[in-house]
Amino acid sequence: MAAASGGADESTATWISNQLRESIISGELEPGSRLRQQGLARQYEASRMPIREALQRLESEGLVSVVAHSGAWVASLDMDEFRKTYQLRNVIEPFALEQSIPGLTPQDKDLIQDLCIEIGALIQGQVDVQEFLRLDREFHLATYVGLDHEHLESIVRRLWNTTQPYRRALVSTLSTDQLVATHKDHEQIVDAIMRQDVRSAGKLMWVHIQRTIYRIENRPEILG
């Protein structure tokens, strides 16, 4: 598909980075996949320059690893890198949530509640993993829109991008009871947000992230 179809308002590099970002986050491109500029140029009917710019943008978001004079790959983590990334999440995200809550509008809170309800309905039946991941990501990122700190928000998004493939692999292995426990965390976080209880919300987020750390450390094959 030609880059021009991305719309006149987007630059070619922006359009290509959007397409690649979606392919990585959705799991179409797996961690460690080689991203060859020549192949991408053919795929998107573009020159090398916007391809390079798109890859650099995705590298800054934590989605791509670029090695000088070697090439680019979809970012991947080993167990040590995973632990360090989640340790960072467990410091930054509770703090970010506490900072975000005072800035959330009634409309923001309505969206957070609606997403939580959608997740609850989804896990009542045969779970569509891709849809669960989409809603889960939207739910969590929606809780941070009250941040008055662009750099902090970008760090949170980068951490989510880096760990997205491993959450996908994990969710595929979870039992119904485990999904229900995960969603109970969501409901408790929403309740704290609605009460403007920033301290409880931060603590609940810490527990929620810690639950994921425990589950993945007990399923090391998820990290390949």
Rank of each mutant, 00 (worst) to 15 (best):
Q164C: 11
Y144P: 01
R158G: 13
T163M: 04
G146Q: 02
S154E: 15
V156A: 06
E153K: 13
L159T: 09
L170F: 06
G146M: 06
P165G: 02
G146N: 08
R167C: 11
V156E: 01
L170S: 00
Q164T: 13
T143C: 15
T162N: 01
R157A: 09
T143Q: 15
Y144D: 02
Y166S: 06
V156M: 03
H151K: 13
L159N: 03
L152N: 01
L147E: 02
R157Q: 12
S172I: 09
R167G: 15
Y166K: 07
T163E: 01
W160H: 09
H151E: 12
S172G: 10
R168E: 10
G146R: 01
V156S: 05
L147T: 00
H151L: 14
T163L: 08
T162P: 01
R158V: 00
Y166P: 04
E150S: 14
W160R: 05
S172N: 10
W160N: 09
Q164I: 08
V171F: 14
Y144I: 01
A169E: 14
L147Q: 04
L152T: 03
H149A: 10
W160Y: 07
E153Y: 15
L147N: 06
V145L: 10
R158T: 07
D148I: 09
T143K: 15
P165C: 02
L147W: 00
S172Q: 14
R158Y: 04
T163V: 14
T163H: 02
E153W: 13
S154Y: 00
L147A: 05
E153N: 11
L147V: 05
